[in-house]
């Protein structure tokens, strides 16, 4: 064997202690997924650049970033997403150290609930903007605002759908190697969405309320 079983080989939590074979098989898969996430990050960066430009030049008589961003609700959303990122890291630890599935499923379910809460809050924000007549069709700035937040929203929703599939797979297939590496990939996805959210909060809400 070329690698000692104790070495980390990919981003995210490494499970070499629990299951060295799964660990080895996971390496290229997780590396590939990590590359995909980097590509996704570029997508978010470009949406943010577009947002930044349109929040200056695309107001067109409509609301300004300061009026459109609700700082209090952004705070709640941040707290929910951060907490869910933390509970997912507990999910990963359960995958690594615990032989019973209960802890794993429990933490992941809690993560899912927090994620749902996040989506609910954001949906309420969207609804309230539209309720004020500030729909994305009104101005370039609002288009950019809805699109940036909406893309993140969609990502989180996809993460939740993925989680749902994982619950089914754990039930049907058990925690076999393929399922374990999928949970590890989902973990990367989820954590990275929180990283993206830091950027969004800073650019859209904090910077916005200073404008």
């Amino acid at each position: 064997m070329r690698f000692a079983s104790g070495t980390d080989r990919h981003p995210g939590l490494n499970i070499h202690g629990r299951d060295p074979d799964a660990h080895r098989a996971a390496e290229p898969v997780i590396f590939g997924f990590w590359i995909f996430l980097m590509s996704d990050l570029v997508l978010f960066a470009l949406l943010m650049a577009t947002y930044a430009s349109m929040s200056l030049h695309g107001i067109a008589g409509g609301p300004t970033p300061r009026q459109a961003g609700d700082l209090a609700s952004a705070g709640v959303e941040t707290a929910l997403l951060l907490a869910s990122s933390f509970t997912f890291s507990l999910t990963s630890l359960a995958l690594k150290y615990r032989d019973d599935r209960r802890a794993l499923v429990g933490w992941m379910a809690l993560t899912g609930l927090l994620g749902l809460g996040f989506l609910g809050c954001e949906a309420k924000d969207f609804a309230s903007l539209i309720g004020k007549g500030w729909a994305p069709e009104l101005s370039g700035f609002l288009s950019a605002h809805f699109t940036l937040l909406g893309t993140h929203f969609l990502h989180v929703a996809c993460g939740l759908a993925w989680m749902a599939v994982m619950f089914v797979q754990i039930a049907v297939r058990g925690l076999d190697q393929a399922v374990a590496t999928r949970i590890m990939r989902l973990a990367l996805f989820w954590h990275l969405l929180d990283v993206v959210w830091i950027g969004i909060v800073t650019l859209v809400f904090l910077q916005g309320s200073l404008s």
Binding site: D8, P11, G12, L13, N14, S85, F86, F88, S89, L188, H191, L192, D194, V195, I198, G199
Partner: peptide, 12 residues
């Protein structure tokens, strides 16, 4: 904070 999360959550 991004650095922190990469380090603590993503183990980079």
């Amino acid at each position: 904070q991004i650095g922190c999360q990469l380090f603590f959550f993503l183990h980079i």
